[in-house]
């Protein structure tokens, strides 16, 4: 893989890229996120795991400012999300299967628009470098809607990296990708983190991916954190062979000594 993007060493004076205190989201009768206290160390890759309805996407949406918490605080990159959303938003980015890019626009046009929205300088050069990095130069002038699932994932990833985010939020980054492309995406994300010191916070159902990529894993269930640690530590704690078995233990309410 080429290494053509020159990304400055950003670094961060804050020990945590994400800090939530008592973060709560209630939809009518349903408590989606329940007093979440979460600290994500800057420069790490942290995985957010949980079954369907565990509160992962709700948490991600609150971190992005797309969903207003019912209660609690969010501090991102050392700044209060409630008062500095615009400033924070310029330094983070995200990719999610729940949102899309305009289908009729070309990949390049989408990147120009989001580059301008995020205030990216030397946008033309940045798009060329990203296209080279993501091996998508040939599809830059194709309509986003005409791309295959794998190509769309690359384009969405390019959008999420257009502003060299200090914090990258990813929801199922390799969903619907073939194993080869998924592996390629993982490698790219690891290289991005190593090169820039950025923090990556990702929700995933792919336990192999989480084991390979994440320094830290947060397991959620019914809106709460029920387990946390490095993949190896969680596997050891639950006495299992891999993270998938740990996940099943937690999802099926098996206790540690079952």
């Amino acid at each position: 893989m080429s290494d053509t993007i020159t990304i400055p060493e950003i670094g961060t004076p804050h020990p945590f890229a994400i800090e939530t205190r008592g973060l709560t989201k209630q939809f009518d009768e349903m408590l989606a996120v329940d007093h979440l206290d979460l600290s994500v160390t800057a420069g790490t890759i942290t995985g957010l795991l949980g079954g369907n309805g565990a509160g992962k996407t709700t948490t991600m949406s609150m971190l992005l400012g797309l969903l207003e918490p019912t209660d609690g605080t969010i501090t991102m990159l050392g700044e209060d999300m409630r008062h500095h959303r615009t400033r924070i938003a310029g330094q983070i980015n995200f990719s999610s299967p729940y949102v899309d890019l305009p289908q009729r626009l070309t990949v390049r046009q989408n990147l120009v628009i989001y580059g301008l929205l995020y205030g990216v300088e030397d946008l033309k050069g940045k798009i060329a470098a990203l296209a080279d990095e993501l091996q998508m130069t040939a599809m830059l002038d194709r309509r986003y809607g005409s791309l295959s699932a794998g190509q769309k994932t690359r384009a969405a990833l390019a959008k999420s990296l257009i502003n060299q985010p200090r914090l990258l939020l990813l929801d199922e980054p390799t969903a619907s990708l073939d194993p080869d492309t998924a592996d390629w995406v993982r490698t790219l994300l690891l290289q991005y983190r190593d090169r820039t010191g950025a923090t990556i916070f990702m929700a995933s159902h792919n336990m192999v991916e989480v084991e390979r990529m994440c320094d830290d894993v947060v397991m959620m269930k019914q809106g709460r954190i029920v387990a946390r640690g490095t993949p190896a530590a969680l596997i050891a704690t639950y006495g299992r062979d891999n993270l998938e078995e740990v996940f099943l233990d937690i999802a099926r309410n098996r206790s540690l000594h079952d």
């Binding site: 797309l66 400033r87 729940y98 899309d100 890019l101 929205l117 995020y118």
Partner: peptide
């Protein structure tokens, strides 16, 4: 409505635009 049809609202409002 174009943004709703293209499911692009999330991308737009997560960006620095107010």
């Amino acid at each position: 409505i174009e943004e709703i049809w293209s499911r692009n609202l999330g991308h737009l409002f997560a960006s620095p635009i107010g």
